[in-house]
Structure formats: structure tokens, C-alpha cells
Design a protein around this nucleic acid. Structure first.
Lengths: 115, 115
DNA sequence: TCGGAAGTTCCAAATGTTTGGAACTTCTGG
DNA sequence: CCAGAAGTTCCAAACATTTGGAACTTCCGA
């Protein structure tokens, strides 16, 4: 376990699935969780947010918030941009619109709660 | 454990959630399963089908098929109509359209598989 | 009245998801 | 160089979903 001897620091890029490989069932399963659906709505309403800000909105501990933002990213719903130690999360709305036209609108438009 | 002494046979109706109480997260979670998403697509393409026919399409044993059709019904995605010992399943497309405009279209239109 | 067909329910095993604390990494400012 | 802030990863416990066989209920036709 010496430090890996790579010359290039290889800036450990954050992985995002390509738009044309996004899987509808995966996307739906991921967003079919009240907490994550709320997150998507907040992002749609407010644009780019810090991971921490998003988590605090929902009253989540850091590790939980990190977990859910990872799921959203891996399903292709959000993009994560790193700036120093900060991570800005945003909705991949154009990508989603191009792959699943109409989906974002469905997710974001509130069905009035008659429950 | 004598037989329940109720005079009325009470025809044990199949329960369906009312359209205006359908919950988006619940609907999405339910349809966010490749198997159930396929079922929805088959129903959209072919209209009303027998529970058994739907299950055979997917190569499922009866109990599994019954389980998934129940989840679809409880989330409000499908309607089940009983006729003797048969149960016909159909998509609640008009109800879904009225509560979540655009959703059915998203579920049913195939994103071409570039994976 | 019997037998079979269609479905459901029951159940336990296997599998997957969610949670949050603690330890860790990385970056920034002083 | 150090402290602190932002996030991630690790981990184990709690919880939920999925699977399919077996037993059961209902209805229909002969």
C-alpha cells in the first residue's frame, strides 16, 4: 500500500451516465421515493444547489444526503459539479427532456393533494 | 371459528384507489420496475388482458403474477374487473392522464435503446 | 356433485434499500 | 502547517421487496 505511483493526479472525475443510455425504469424507481422526488422539485425550482443545502432542506444528516444525491446522479437525474470541496447539484433537465420527453414536467408539476 | 354469520354475502369488491388520491411517488416507485413497466406497456398496446395472460407473457408463475398485478392496482395504475373466476386487467389511462398529464405517454413511448 | 381452471393468500428465504454515526479525504484560509 | 468545512465512504442494523411453492377459494360446465 504505497501511494499509487501514478504521475497524473487524474482528478477523480465524477461519473455521470450518458444521456442516451439512461434507463427509464431506473429513473422512475429512483425518483419514486418521496424524499428524492422532493429533491428533484427543489432543484427544478431553485436551480443548482450545494449538496449540503439540499440535505438541510430535508433535514438529513450528511451521509444520508450524500447517499441520495449519489442515487440521483447515478440514475442520470442530476449532474454534480465539483468546485473545491463543494459539490453543486443540478437537474439534468435538457438531457431528460431529450431522452424522455415530458417526464420532467410530470415530476415537477404538483398534482394538488386531494388525499 | 364457525362460519361468519353475516347474512349479506358482500361480494368482496376489488379495491381501487380514487383517481384524486393517487400519489405520484407511489405510482413511480411501482412502475419503476422493469417487469411492471413491461406489463404496463403490454396493457397499453393490447388493452384489457387476463391476469394469467399477462403473467404468461412474462413467464411468471401465478403467485408472482398475482403479486405484481396487485401492486399495479394498489398504486392506481390498473383496474381489475372480475368476471366469474377471471380477472381482467386494464390500464387506467384516462384516470392517470387526468391526475398526471403526460405520464402515460412517457411510460409507453419507447426510448430507443442506445445502451 | 365433481373436477378443473383462474386467481389469491400464506409463508419463508433471498435479496435489496435505507439510515446515520464515525472515520476519512480534500480543499481553503489564516 | 493547522483547523475547519464539505463531502464521501464504510459499516452494520433496520426495514422492505421479491420470489415461488403449496394450500386455498370460487366459479363454471358436464
Amino acid at each position: 500500500m504505497t501511494k499509487t505511483p501514478e504521475a497524473a493526479p487524474a482528478r477523480e472525475t465524477i461519473r455521470h451516465p450518458a444521456t442516451d443510455t439512461l434507463d427509464l425504469a431506473h429513473v422512475l424507481r429512483t425518483v419514486g421515493d418521496p424524499l428524492r422526488l422532493s429533491m428533484i422539485r427543489v432543484l427544478a425550482a431553485e436551480g443548482e444547489l450545494l449538496c449540503g443545502a439540499l440535505g438541510e432542506r430535508m433535514g438529513l444528516p450528511k451521509s444520508t444526503s450524500s447517499y441520495h444525491t449519489r442515487l440521483l446522479r447515478e440514475a442520470g437525474l442530476t449532474r454534480t459539479r465539483q468546485d473545491g470541496t463543494l459539490r453543486y447539484i443540478s437537474l439534468r433537465d435538457a438531457d431528460l427532456e431529450s431522452r424522455f420527453p415530458g417526464l420532467v414536467e410530470v415530476l415537477v408539476s404538483q398534482a394538488d393533494d386531494a388525499a
